[in-house]
Design a protein around this nucleic acid. Structure first.
Lengths: 260, 260
DNA sequence: CAGTGGTCTAGACCACTTA
DNA sequence: AAGTGGTCTAGACCACTGA
């Protein structure tokens, strides 16, 4: 099924606002607000809209693209939430100064590395089912005698160790060891029809234990960045609890906060 | 100016959905979607809506409260973004399992401690203006010879050191030392008409230097949680860059991630 | 099939800023 | 006073889910 697209070209206007050339495909299943947000984001990242530039106001943009105001507004709001635009009532919308980094997202370290072009590998250190710590059962909202699979993996990139990851899953959801090694945890869960929609993370630091130090090629007591995460599926049920330790010298988290 | 309010009481219905009793004040300046979101959030936190409960669908809720669907929808969306509700198309809306912690927000450590009922104190260790590192000037989007105020403070709670905070501000925005000590950085900026709207944070870990160790009552090389942040005002201009070190034993960050 | 959320339109009125 | 974003309404059609 091929969509056809409307094209709106930049008009050679004289004015403060930069008119973007934006293409929308109205027959695409991709929502219009999303297409628009992507197009604006691309314009910012490509430098077509420079930091500090005033942005075309939403009514003008809407009428220029033959969109309704709410749809246009939603696209702009996406970028405000991402930290790319800033709005002030009665004034207008501007592009934020400074280059942007990516924000913390619901992805695995694996995805991050793939995106960065590195070649990540994973070694399965441990895989067993059994009764676990009461505190971990509580994180998963399980009875304390519910069987839980414990997985421990070592993530490396370019032959260098990056992180030790320990994950706990209710036995009925846990993927097989071989599938896990082939596809990673989140993809294995997706293949089982488990869609993770929400995660709560706690980020801290701690000294490496002797075991962690050995695995990560650090000295005992060296600083590690820790992240523990509880993930929930699309019915709000806790499906995974993870406890990850990253080498502080190789990893950090980025977040963008917006005051609303 | 006193508003009068409509009251919608729970009807003794037999059904899976729990009808909330929600009051909206239509003459209040507080937006209706926000009032509604607050009311639902309160119902969840008070246990009126239990984890896993099915939530009333948005059309029913809208007509019950005499609200339009978009307004109702926006309220629900706020809570989905906060990680309290989960929606699935064709199915419905449910309350997420597990108690919720707060998410990372645009607040200072000071605010956090006040909220937790602790009595925080701040000691100003350093305050001077001058030329700074080129990298820091770049974070603030300033020419490298622009004068910058460097502030270093030690934050304590209950007499115990918690964090060393180093902040850099363009000289024309920096508050006086005495105002800083009295009101904290962000409040001082607000008093000057600087409204921080956006922040980009990087969270990592590192070993304590000898100086940091002495200030924080830790050993040299002890793990510290680090956060560096660039803050932007409502015109998208960088107004502050901070480099903070927290004792790993006393502090962590929490985030909620939503997949959309 | 009925019920759910996801998207979209075409208006309206208001609050705030700047000049 | 003019221009901006913030809120709100009253519809519409669609896609997906489950019985």
């Amino acid at each position: 099924m091929l969509g056809f697209s409307y094209s709106f070209l930049a008009r050679p206007e004289i004015g403060v606002d930069v008119p973007l050339s934006i293409e929308l495909d109205r027959s695409s299943p991709v929502p219009l607000y999303y297409q628009l947000a992507q197009a604006i984001e691309a314009a910012i990242r490509d430098g077509e809209l420079a930091p500090g530039d005033r942005f075309e106001n939403e009514l003008a943009l809407a009428s220029r693209l033959t969109l309704s105001r709410p749809t246009t507004r939603r696209a702009i709001q996406e970028l405000v939430d991402k930290g790319l635009l800033v709005r002030k009532r009665g004034v207008g919308t501007q592009v934020v100064q400074n280059p942007v980094h990516r924000r913390v997202e619901l992805t695995s370290l694996f995805d991050d590395l793939v995106r960065a072009g590195q070649e990540p590998t994973t070694e399965l250190l441990e895989y067993h089912a059994g009764i676990v710590d009461e505190q971990i059962a509580a994180e998963l909202n399980l009875a304390k005698d519910h069987e839980v699979v414990t997985i421990q993996r070592l993530r490396c990139a370019n032959g260098e160790p990056l992180a030790v990851m320990t994950n706990y899953l209710p036995v009925e959801l846990a993927p097989e060891a071989d599938q896990l090694e082939a596809n990673g945890l989140y993809q294995s869960l997706r293949a089982r029809g488990v869609h993770i929609r929400l995660a709560r993370q706690r980020i801290g630091a701690k000294p490496a234990t002797r075991t962690e130090a050995r695995l990560l090629d650090e000295k005992a007591g060296a600083p590690l960045l820790t992240m523990s995460r509880t993930a929930f599926d699309d019915s709000g049920k806790a499906v995974e609890f993870g406890d990850h330790c990253y080498r502080a010298s190789r990893y950090y988290f980025e977040t963008t906060l917006v005051d609303r």
